[in-house]
């Protein structure tokens, strides 16, 4: 399953909730304000690194760039463009948008 998260992890518990329900082998795509979770050396980066052991984590590049985050993305989080977003949806059986 593909999960999308569009909220900042510093303001909202959506990422935590998503990670609680994301099963091993699923994918999490950070979009919109969700991409702030992809940054290194933050209050949530340890949690994200821990999650990377069991799920794949992607961040939407246009959203990363819009927010000036392109040089802060932690190792292990893969960047995708909108086409990559489409591919992720195709590759997974269903999409859960954590709004």
């Amino acid at each position: 399953m593909l999960h999308t998260v569009n909220k900042s992890p510093f303001d909202n518990s959506t990422l935590q909730t998503c990670l609680k329900f994301a099963r091993r082998g699923s994918a999490v795509l950070l979009i919109e304000d969700g991409v702030y979770a992809a940054a290194r050396d933050t209050a949530v980066s340890k949690q994200v690194q821990e999650a990377l052991k069991s799920v794949s984590i992607y961040a939407l590049k246009p959203d990363v760039e819009a927010r000036g985050m392109q040089n802060r993305v932690m190792d292990g989080v893969r960047l995708v463009d909108y086409g990559g977003f489409v591919d992720l949806v195709v590759e997974h059986n269903a999409v859960q948008s954590w709004l």
Binding site: M1, K20, F21, A22, R23, S26, N93, A94, V95, Q96
Partner: peptide, 11 residues
């Protein structure tokens, strides 16, 4: 709950 979600076609 995670298992229930995983088995869905449309969420």
């Amino acid at each position: 709950m995670a298992e229930i979600m995983e088995g869905q076609d449309v969420i």
